[in-house]
Computed example of a mutant assay.
Amino acid sequence: MQNYSPYYLLLFVCMGLMFLNALKKDKQLVHYLFVIFCGSLCMVAAQKLSAQSIGAYQYLIGLFTCATCNVSWLIARTLFREHSPISRRHVAFAATIAGLIMFNQTWHYLVSLDPQPLPTSDIMWRLKQGVNEVTILLSSSILALSFWEAFRGYSKKTQSQKMQSVIFGSAWVLAVFNASIFPKFIFSAAEIELYNPIIITSSALLIVFAMQGVMLLQAITTNKQKLHHNSKSKTAFDTDDVKECCDSVHHQEQVPPELIGGIAELMNEQQLFLQTSLKISDFAQALKVPEYKISRAIRYHYKVANFNLFINQYRVNYAKTLLASEQAKEWSILSIALESGFSSLATFNRVFKDIVGGIPNEYRKRKRKRKGNYNENIRAC
């Protein structure tokens, strides 16, 4: 007889991590995806635990297990890609897999209610077998893509990023090996069925803990960079900025024209501001100059107080273009925020309001109203 207690462990761990990330104040895209992923694993555990007691209705719970491997791939892209990690085609691909899983669960539900709920033609059964094969193929492919995302561009990563890739990739390899290969070597078919709850739970938790671990490491790295940047900014202010504030014209003359041209190229042509985690060190590395020279150029040539405000002004202007664009009129505010280089909707709303004076949704409505009035005036003429 199977021991179902591992499923309780999976349920409670995933539920705890789901609420932990859902209640986080400054949530980013990866936190929303991780909440969905954990919620789907909770449904996997709930379906397994309730199968004997509720019978066919377990497949209704199974409808909500459609966000596992597909959403884990989206999480992998978000964790290891800085610029535009998710587009509409990625969401469409993940949604296709979700739809196939929901089709399978619906089929099992109908068959469980009535031995012949559907036409007896072999066409329907062949369709079911075809959908099963396609689902397995796409799920296997997306697992490979998740592993590839972690190690893409490995040689160019920092030591911290390499460690994150190793943690994530190793967890995936161990989970797949533990779920599909290892049991066949040491267990018989009957024993595999007996130990299936332990196999499924241990494999799922390997991936869950790896994702949460990488998210924590990235948060720690981001906080360290902020503290380092603030410390350097404070030191620079204590030693140089008082003098510079008193003689800004002199410093403006010291900003090399080629540096201004380099910054303009990075912002206007390469649109570097669309990168979510852009730092002043990225500019310094691209232009091969010290960071303080970038900071000085921004203050005295562009007349902007600091690097973050400089980048956010470009992002907000880009977002304003999207909000007023016909091509993006069906896009959500979150999609526009991510496309404009912001890491979360909360940050986008706050920065947009500080710079423009209102929230993005109000700006979009105002632009549409003005455009509608303009079109009416044209028709009247």
Rank of each mutant, 00 (worst) to 15 (best):
E330R: 00
L278A: 12
I260R: 14
E244L: 12
V35M: 05
T221L: 00
E339Y: 09
S231A: 07
D122R: 01
F273R: 02
R296I: 04
P290Q: 04
K48Q: 15
Y57F: 15
S180N: 11
N223H: 08
T239R: 12
M163D: 11
L205K: 00
K162E: 05
A236C: 06
L33K: 00
A22N: 02
V35S: 05
H83L: 13
L259G: 10
L274S: 07
T65A: 11
H228C: 08
I311N: 07
Q252A: 11
Q28N: 07
L137W: 14
Y300R: 01
L29P: 00
V242W: 12
P256E: 13
D238A: 07
R126F: 13
R379Q: 11
I260H: 09
Y7N: 12
L206T: 01
A144C: 15
E326S: 10
A319G: 03
V13K: 02
F182P: 02
V214Q: 07
Y109N: 08
I198K: 02
K329L: 11
E149P: 06
V242Y: 11
A210G: 05
V249G: 09
V351W: 07
N230E: 09
K288L: 12
A219T: 11
A98F: 03
I198F: 15
R366C: 09
K234D: 13
Q252F: 06
D122Y: 05
A189V: 13
D26I: 06
M18D: 07
G62R: 04
C246N: 08
I311C: 09
I123K: 01
T239Q: 10
F168L: 09
K48R: 14
S155Y: 04
G357V: 07
T68P: 04
V111I: 15
F310H: 07
F307T: 07
D282Y: 06
Q327G: 03
L20R: 10
P197N: 13
L29K: 01
L17Q: 02
F93K: 06
K25M: 13
S188Q: 10
T68R: 04
L118N: 02
I97W: 01
K128F: 15
Y300V: 15
N70H: 03
M18T: 01
L29Q: 10
S84R: 04
E291I: 15
C66G: 12
I199M: 10
C69V: 15
K371V: 11
A328H: 12
K25P: 11
A337R: 03
Q116D: 11
A337I: 01
G153K: 02
K27T: 08
G39K: 03
F151Q: 03
N178F: 10
R296D: 14
V166W: 03
Q218A: 06
E82L: 07
S344W: 04
A346P: 05
G372P: 03
L322V: 01
I86E: 00
H250D: 11
Q129H: 10
T96G: 10
W107N: 12
P6F: 05
V13T: 09
T239K: 12
A337L: 05
I260N: 11
F283V: 04
A328I: 02
